[in-house]
Design a protein around this nucleic acid. Sequence first.
RNA 1: GCCCCCGUAGCUCAAUCGGAUAGAGCAACGGACUUCUAAUCCGUAGGUUGCACGUUCAAGUCGUGCCGGGGGUGCCA
Length: 592
Amino acid sequence: MSLQQELTALFSQAFEAEELESSFGAVAVSQRPELADFQCNGALGAAKPAGRNPRDIAAAIVAHVDAPELIDTLDIAGPGFINIHISDKALAGSVSAMSDTERLGVAPIHRPLTVVVDYGGPNMSKALHVGHLRAAIIGESVKRLFSFLGHTTIGDIHMGDWGMPIGQLIVELQDRQPDLPYFDPEYDVAVDGPYPEESPVTLDDLSDMYPVITRRCADDPEVAERARVATFELQNGRAGYLAVWEHFHSVSVAEQTKDFKALGVEFDVWYGESTVNQHLEPMVRTALAGGVGYESDGAVIVDVATPEDKKELPPLLLTRSDGSYLYSTTDLATIEMRVKDMGMDLGLYVVDARQGLHFEQVFRAARKMNILPSDVMVEHIGFGTVNGPDGRPFKTREGGVLRLGDLIALVTEGARARLDEAHIAEDYPDEERDVIARQVGLAALKFGDLSNHRTSNYTFDLERFSAFEGKTGPYLQYSAVRIKSILRRADKQGLKAAEMIPPTVSQERILMLRLVRLSEVVHRAADLRAPNVLAEYSYELATDFSRFYEHCHILNEPDVRRQASWLALVSLTLDVLTKLLDLLGIEIPDRM
RNA sequence: GCCCCCGUAGCUCAAUCGGAUAGAGCAACGGACUUCUAAUCCGUAGGUUGCACGUUCAAGUCGUGCCGGGGGUGCCA
């Protein structure tokens, strides 16, 4: 049990003893560190319903709390805040207990769930660019976080590979290379042999074609109509289109795998819209048979509005009027698959916040169509847009955006330049310098994004993603590297970490107080699905360590008990930092 | 039209789901390297939290209205 949990239990009992709601006993970290370590504000909330004076309640609560081992002093301040000073001994004991466990003292969850994290979601046939950064790294972080807490997680890239864009690309390719066998309706594999094995296009070709055909469809209804027909025919199994789809798919997956790998993002499954292809028609049929779905203007729709709604909610479209399917359809069938085949208890959709309405429709329709049981939860974890310098979101279909691979190269070069100018790693082997540059560059990139709140929009700024000083990823790495260096030297000198003794200097005490918060921070980050909570805490932990480092010279410490205790303390700090950075998807070099 | 999100220091962003004196980084200015890695540390300065009412012991946070920005809104994803 964490220190905060112990205190909360203690104060909850005290409130019960006063015949007040035990929930008023919630203890939080103090916001005024000069006044207290922890605080309980319950007396303020309890006063009104109980018809009592908050300060009197606080006094009564304090009188009930008797834990001399744990608590040094209790003060009542202001209107009725109870300020708690933890005893140094209890603090050291609590920190020490953290280092005894793999979980670093993070409280276990009540019920492990099978959590499907839907993130990444690139469209097939598009090179990854900065717009894909957030989905990838926020999703990766959320997945790692839930996994660390003890849930079973499945990360699914959920590629956009079965919708209108594919039909559009087919049309564009047909116009560019009309003689390809894929477009010949007369082509018969049995007679003419199999379709060519080699792809007629590269991913670069497809990426170039994308904005062109999008524009053409917008400008010319006839082209748009052809794209619709092509989409319909693809979804209904036209052999040539399926064959060319296979090429689109394989060149896309090959390139995107590289990009995601470079980013340190790994999916457990590479499913996509097309995965549920076979289930679309039966699902729509069932919806029609049950009366949940019905025809309207030739399309099949599901009403998702309820009388309680204040805003008007448009119905969800299951099929277009030509019978082809939309991403609503594949999203619904995907829910069905995840529930039936993957045992999903909780689905987290890490997708652009602008798709909020879509997911509200899909989730409601899924309940209504009985493909989402009441005990399975699904949530849209929306995130803000990355805007261009003009203040508008990067438009993925207008082309001319920064490729993800180029971005990674840029930040890596930046880190490399920093190494050179500081003459830091001149004696390291070249391979190691390369690895360090890559790790540091990625850390800058990821932390620059993850330290923002998920839902906030921000302007893309290369400087922001390639800063190595101050509140940055490299600062966190640097802190960890300094600890590694100390531990290496200590080891060489035969110094060993030993029992953690109560803190003797303020920097040490502050660091300890920071460490014991870990459990609450991790749980809070998971509850809010907000990696920036981890990022913020990581930075604070690193600054606390840096101050301790400046003030307490471990290797020169004459008091051997103190020295051994400090070694244990920084060793734990390294473990916690390593874990936190891992949850953010950031690697730590051995030296930098 | 309707709905959603945002507006915090010069800039980029936080703020423990209503708590005490709104915090960081960058930029600016001033200090600290013969000592475990200076990608560091210490200090100074910087604010009517868009505006106005309201709810409450307590509002950046909740409610209403307004101003400004972004997004969404049945056959794109």
